[in-house]
Structures are given as structure tokens and as C-alpha cells.
Design a protein around this nucleic acid. Structure first.
Length: 284
DNA sequence: CAAGACTCCTGACGGC
DNA sequence: TGCCGTCAGGAGTCTT
């Protein structure tokens, strides 16, 4: 599922072909995909708006738009689970949800098997984006910040790191990978993490995300593909995600899978010690 | 505030 | 072969 590295890859591949182009029209195949405004307003507003810059915030793809008449808007795309965004051809005719025409004759296409993805068009980004924590690859996020932030809360690490208002961009895969690298149990309470381990976790998050971006994301099923149609390569470097029942790549113990907050959670019982007060029963 | 359940969706997959 | 139940999960919402 697209997380920060996958969304970043989409932005990097699309930006050169999209920046400078002007939208000329739009078709909405599945109305609920449009988060804002209404479908009619979306279709009426988009034509004439030129893409000044394509960038990413958390897992949102954002296009800054400007019209000759001085209008300013921002187009947002959230891929959620199975959304795909690409430029140009008529590849993948199935599951198309929104088609946005460009002045060079190409189309910015959004497809989405499970229909969770959303496209928005707003005057101000704050009108659409929920509260978001810092970007994990920015200087705003480091071991010191994380140590304090963990201590200020009292929440299980896994759900906390998935919480976009705490830290932006992580999803199920990279949280499991980062906790494994930092040898922290997913159910451990955030306020019990020692300062040094918080620094390790922050470093793990940065290293893993950067590595995943270099590998153009992770593709372990048929869903995520880059805008150029290629699968990512980071799945080959997974340490725990999807590896339940197989040996831990660090210590050889069998990787466990439990449910945490309705999400499959993979970890090594030997490398990632159960926190005090959590018996075997509650750790799966 | 924390945590769990529920919802939105479809396709893949296991069992019979 | 086909039918049915289950599972997967990002994130918003609601309940405990």
C-alpha cells in the first residue's frame, strides 16, 4: 500500500511531465472519489489551471495550480490502498475513477480498485488536509524530537507511529520495519522508550524511508506500481513485513504476526522484547 | 486521552 | 466448478 516512499516516487516521476502543463478538462467516473468540491464544481474549476509545482506532504500528492485569471488552487491526491496515478496513455482501462485532460493531449489518470483513494481541489490546503505531524525526512524530525514526543504520550508504539497527526507518512510496512530495526516491541508503551532507543528509532525511520525511496517503493502484490508501470524493489529488503513464520534476518528466530489496532503486525519475539506486563497471550 | 470497533471497497484465496 | 466466508488495510468516525 502506498506510504511515504511510494507517494514520493509517484511525485518524482510525474513532476517533470506535469509541471508547466495546463488542465483542459476532467471526467469523473466514480463521483465519491472527489473529496472536494462537488463533482460539477471540480469539473468546472479544473480547466485553465496550470501546474506550477508537484510535491508531497505526508501521503498526499499536491499540485499547486494557477490560472491566467489569477485563480489559485491546489489539487490533492491520496492513493490510500490501491490508487494509481499516471500520465499519458490508455494503460490499465479498468478501475478508472478520474481522468484529467492536459493541454499537451495527454491525460492524468487516477485508477483505484478499492475506491478508497480521494482527489480534491481546494483554495487552501488546510481546508482538506487533517492535522499532520512532521515529515520524517525533514530536519524537524530527529532523535531528540522523537524522544520527547514518545515520552509526552502514553500509547502503544505501533498505533502511535501509524498516527499521521503524530508523524506523517509512515504506514503498516515501514512501521514494522523501523520497529524491528530499532528492536522495539510494537505494543510497548511510548513513554517507556529510553532516550537512546528513541534516537535509534528515528535513525531507523530515516534510513528505511530513504532506502525505500531509492528502490522506488515496495510492491509485494499487484497493487502498487510506479507511474511508469514498474513495481518497486524495496520488498526484497523487508526484514519482518510479510515474513511471519520465516526466520528473522537478524537472529533467526521465527517472525511472529499479531493483530494490533486491526492491523497485521510483524515482529521478532527475540529481537523485540515484550514490554513488562505483557504476557505471551497478549502478544499473540 | 487511549484504545477498540466499525465503515468504506474489491479481489484473492481457502474450504467444501 | 462454483459458492461463500474471510482477509487485507488508510483513515475517518464513533463508542467505551
Amino acid at each position: 500500500m502506498p506510504e511515504l516512499p511510494e507517494v514520493e516516487t509517484v511525485v518524482r516521476q510525474l513532476a517533470p511531465g506535469l509541471e508547466g502543463r495546463t488542465f483542459t478538462g476532467a471526467q469523473v467516473v466514480w463521483p465519491r472519489t472527489i473529496a472536494a468540491p462537488g463533482v460539477a464544481t471540480f469539473r468546472r474549476t479544473l480547466p485553465g489551471l496550470r501546474v506550477e509545482r508537484l510535491w508531497r506532504r505526508a501521503k498526499y500528492i499536491v499540485a499547486d495550480l494557477a490560472g491566467d485569471d489569477g485563480r489559485r488552487r491546489q489539487l490533492t491526491v491520496h492513493l490510500r490502498m490501491t490508487g494509481r496515478l499516471w500520465l499519458g496513455d490508455d494503460r490499465e482501462p479498468d478501475h478508472l475513477r478520474v481522468l484529467m485532460d492536459l493541454d499537451d493531449g495527454r491525460v492524468l489518470a487516477f485508477s483505484d480498485v478499492r475506491k478508497f483513494g480521494r482527489v480534491g481541489l481546494v483554495k487552501q490546503l488546510d481546508d482538506l488536509l487533517p492535522p499532520l505531524g512532521p515529515e520524517p525526512l525533514s530536519d524537524d524530525f530527529d532523535g531528540e524530537w522523537l524522544a520527547r514526543a514518545l515520552r509526552a504520550r502514553k500509547r502503544q508504539l505501533k498505533p502511535l507511529l501509524l498516527d499521521q497527526s503524530f508523524l506523517a507518512g509512515l504506514g503498516n510496512i515501514y512501521v514494522d520495519e523501523a520497529l524491528h530495526t530499532a528492536r522495539l516491541h510494537p505494543l510497548r508503551s511510548s513513554d517507556t522508550v529510553p532516550r537512546a532507543r528513541a534516537h535509534e528509532l528515528a535513525e531507523a525511520i530515516k534510513v528505511i524511508l530513504a532506502g525505500a525511496i531509492r528502490a522506488e517503493g515496495s510492491s509485494f502484490d499487484t497493487f502498487y506500481r510506479t507511474p511508469e508501470g514498474q513495481p518497486g524493489r524495496f520488498q526484497d529488503e523487508f526484514r519482518v513485513y510479510g515474513r511471519d513464520g520465516r526466520p528473522c534476518r537478524r537472529c533467526g528466530a521465527t517472525v511472529a504476526k499479531i493483530l494490533v489496532g486491526q492491523r497485521g503486525t510483524h515482529f521478532c519475539r527475540r529481537c523485540q522484547r515484550a514490554p513488562r506486563g505483557l504476557g505471551q497471550a497478549s502478544t499473540g
